[in-house]
Design a protein around this nucleic acid. Sequence first.
DNA 1: CATTTAATTCTATAATACTGGAAATATGGA
DNA 2: TCCATATTTCCAGTATTATAGAATTAAATG
Lengths: 124, 124
Amino acid sequence: MDSKSAIACLSALAHDGRLSVFRLLVQAGPGGIPAGEIARRLDVLRNTLSANLNVLSHAGLIASRREGRSILYRAEYGAMRDMLAFLVEDCCAGSSEICAPLTEVLSRAACCAADKAKPLESAQ
Amino acid sequence: MDSKSAIACLSALAHDGRLSVFRLLVQAGPGGIPAGEIARRLDVLRNTLSANLNVLSHAGLIASRREGRSILYRAEYGAMRDMLAFLVEDCCAGSSEICAPLTEVLSRAACCAADKAKPLESAQ
DNA sequence: CATTTAATTCTATAATACTGGAAATATGGA
DNA sequence: TCCATATTTCCAGTATTATAGAATTAAATG
């Protein structure tokens, strides 16, 4: 990913409404959610939402497909991955004691905890 | 990290000049670089740079300390880590086949490749 | 204290982005 | 075809952000 694309992604996510939309879609999984339901769940105007979905689409962070009268939106995990990779590439001048904690935390992200089965003494 | 802080970080990085500054500081390591040298290396005006350093500072992505006449700036790896973690938390509704590639790529970031490749032998 | 160097703050202008009402487009069904 | 639903596009007003010249603060040194 080049700098221009990364800025488009960062800029798209640097907005309360759009970040909420993106996080909703990330959590929703690859099935996607119709625009109308996104508007309903997040309680936002449809035209405003549409504009924001457009920004996220142009950044490549989400994709859409029509299904009947609805248009379903879903997160583009690949773009998200590329953007995150861009941010951490060539970092720390090669000293892993600085950025190891970074990747460690990321690999423990809640989404994969179940399958990774990494027993980080969960305090339940 | 809460949504508000994450947006401040994303917004700070969603700018060509600031992203360049941040990447320069990330690559430079914890020692930091004086503002003047950042301006020289990136060929930007000092007052414009100062404004951008201020935005990055307020977002918590960089920190500064005075040393003589110079003010040295350095990346705050912790804030960077928290922001990335925020973006991937609770993703994919728990199905790791979606986000496993994401964390995999991140854990292969160039900065840690050297140590990842050499498991235990030459680790100091 | 005056001078030099380093960096910031002030200020005005230009550019860009956000919002929401109204109109338009697309689809499915009676 | 006519209508209801789903979503987008258009547009104008408002707000925010970016830029750069000029002035200012801060530190070191003679």
